[in-house]
Amino acid sequence: MRRALLIALASVGLMAAEPAPAPDQPLPDAGQEARARALFADVRCVVCQHESIADSPAGMAADMRRLVREEVAAGRTDEQVRRGLVDRYGDYILFQPPFRLGTLMLWLGPFALILGAGAALLLRSRRRRPDPDPLSSEEEAALVRLTENKLRRDPDATSPHDGR
């Protein structure tokens, strides 16, 4: 009974896995295939997000490679293919998104964070801490009494430097 339950759970896990993508079918024209492969390197995989569709093993990346090959075979220019991908997936799909108002944060965000952190550290280091008020005569007398008692040598104490 326990074995049957484990087999059922394992089969459910296998069914939930993404099926392997179909093998890539390169274009018959070597020039078009070279253009398509160059475009693969510029396009981000929407599943992996840190890999290009040329390097990604995800099924979605295989679909995107097929789409790029179809567009190149249809005679579209590289810019038209990129624009079509951006229209479908957004500016984030490109490893180098265009510089415009909508992508301003993608381009300048890291620099703004570094400058903001530097300004905060600079302001914090320049802030003056107030000097403490001087001790009153009663406080000074109490301090002297406390330190005299602490500095008096204990006659029973030994020191490693006594030479005994």
Rank of each mutant, 00 (worst) to 15 (best):
R126K: 10
L151H: 11
Q80Y: 03
G109E: 10
R152Q: 08
S137Y: 06
E139W: 03
M105K: 11
V68W: 02
I53L: 11
P98M: 01
Q80E: 11
F99P: 01
L108H: 09
A58D: 14
S125Y: 10
R65H: 08
L101E: 14
E70V: 00
G75E: 02
V46H: 04
A41Q: 13
V68S: 04
A120V: 02
A58V: 00
Y89A: 07
N149W: 07
L39V: 01
L67E: 03
L121F: 00
V47H: 11
D131V: 10
P98D: 05
L39Q: 04
A36C: 11
I53V: 15
C48I: 02
R35S: 13
L113A: 15
F95V: 00
A120E: 06
P98Y: 01
R129Y: 10
P130Y: 10
D91V: 07
K150M: 06
R100Y: 07
A54T: 06
E70Q: 14
S125M: 08
V68T: 08
V86N: 04
A117R: 04
E139K: 06
G118T: 10
F40G: 07
S136R: 15
L106R: 14
D55P: 04
R127Q: 15
R127C: 13
S52W: 10
D78Y: 03
Q80H: 08
E139H: 00
V144Y: 10
V47I: 06
K150S: 12
E71C: 09
L108A: 15
R83C: 01
F40D: 01
V86W: 02
G109C: 09
G109T: 05
I114S: 15
G59R: 15
R37W: 01
L135P: 15
L151D: 13
G90M: 05
R129H: 13
R124I: 02
G109L: 06
C48F: 04
A120P: 00
G90E: 04
L123R: 14
L146N: 07
G102M: 01
A112F: 13
D87C: 08
F95K: 08
A142F: 03
R65Q: 11
L143P: 04
A119D: 09
G118W: 11
F40A: 06
L85W: 01
L113V: 11
R128S: 14
L106S: 02
A119S: 12
R100F: 03
I114A: 15
F99M: 08
D55H: 10
R88K: 00
L135N: 13
A36H: 01
T103A: 09
E70W: 05
L101M: 09
W107G: 07
L67G: 00
R37N: 09
L39E: 06
A141H: 13
G102Y: 02
M60K: 09
